[in-house]
Simulated assay, not measured.
Amino acid sequence: MDTTSGTLDEALHRLHGSGPEFKGYLSNHGPMAVEALVRHGQAHTVHRWLDAYGARLEDVPGARTPIGDADWQEALGDPLRVTDWTRYFSRWIARRPWREVLAQWWPRLLPGIAGAATHPVIRVGHAVRSLVTEGEDAPRLSELAHALGYWAARHTLLPVTVAPSGGAAPADALAALPRIAEQNVTPLRGYAQLSGTPGWPEAAGSLRVPENPEAVRENLSALVRAATLNYGAYGHGDGVMLVHAATAPNAVLRTLPVLPQELWGPSLAAAWAATAAITSLYAADAPLPPPDASSVTAEEVFELAAANGDAHVIKFADTALDVAASAEDGDDRALAAALNAVRLMGSGD
């Protein structure tokens, strides 16, 4: 990613004047989308994209009461305290290395990965990637504080315990998930149906979580791949919401290298819980063939995503290109999944 022009930092500076949500519950995808655009050679489109997208954003919510090290648990999961949380993490990141702050807070935030339809952890993943690959500077460190603050404010536990302890590979576990009865719902209403969905607890518990850290990383990578390809066939259930089944675990995968290895297993388990829930909520019952990707390159696919302009399309294409980069020669299914997102979504939230 070329940031010599300062495009990413300029965009983040602009975005940090807006809150993490708008219209009461819609997530601000700006920081995630612009990071993906710059990374994939579309820096020249960023400010024009942001001019259009930023028109719908709202101001940063007002602060309420400062959060301290002794009382942070009281504010966990309170969306009205999001600015308090951002300021709390900004103070910590200003006086300690960001990797230490992340390692301390990751296990505290991980159980709430499903909050705000997993957007907070996805935002953290993009922030971490830019810090790791491009280095530290004020806008990128500030973005991590904003992302962690959003996660803390929207921290939400699933109403059903997911403790994967089986022997299934990610693709097999994903394929075994039943669908909830009423799929045209908000995430919270959908999550509430999981425990009563026949066969869901058993299917959600079937995934194998290895003890070896490198095997954990391989399984998490396989989960991202399976969820990406699953979108190619089942994305027509809900083209917008199902993208998070792939982008959320990919955010976790991008963060693993900066975390202590003892956190890798729990990270896989939490990522799987989120992917399993979203898949059961929003994947179609029956598959349809995705678009043909045999004649397009990865670069061309991302150009199409950027031209589409929808933030979900851009972020999903970003994940699909990760999967495509590690695929065997001739396997264009991840690119086909990205083209499916382009087909299913127009420019929107």
Rank of each mutant, 00 (worst) to 15 (best):
R217D: 01
E211T: 13
G190M: 08
G167V: 07
T156A: 11
G166V: 02
W151A: 11
P178L: 06
W151I: 10
N184T: 12
G167Y: 01
G205D: 08
Y231S: 10
A227H: 06
G239R: 08
V162M: 08
A192L: 10
D172V: 13
M241Q: 15
G199D: 03
G167E: 12
L157K: 08
N212G: 12
S221R: 12
P187L: 07
D238G: 12
A192N: 07
I180W: 03
P201E: 03
A169N: 05
P159M: 09
V224T: 07
Y191A: 10
A169C: 01
H236I: 03
G199Q: 05
A171W: 02
G232F: 07
P178F: 02
Y231D: 10
E214Q: 14
S221I: 04
D172Y: 03
T228R: 14
R189F: 12
N230M: 13
L229G: 11
H155D: 09
H155P: 03
E218F: 00
N184E: 15
L194S: 03
A153F: 02
P198F: 04
P178N: 07
A215M: 07
G239T: 09
L188C: 01
L220E: 02
N230C: 14
V216A: 00
S221D: 14
A153D: 06
R208L: 13
P164M: 04
D238Y: 10
W200S: 04
G199I: 03
E214K: 08
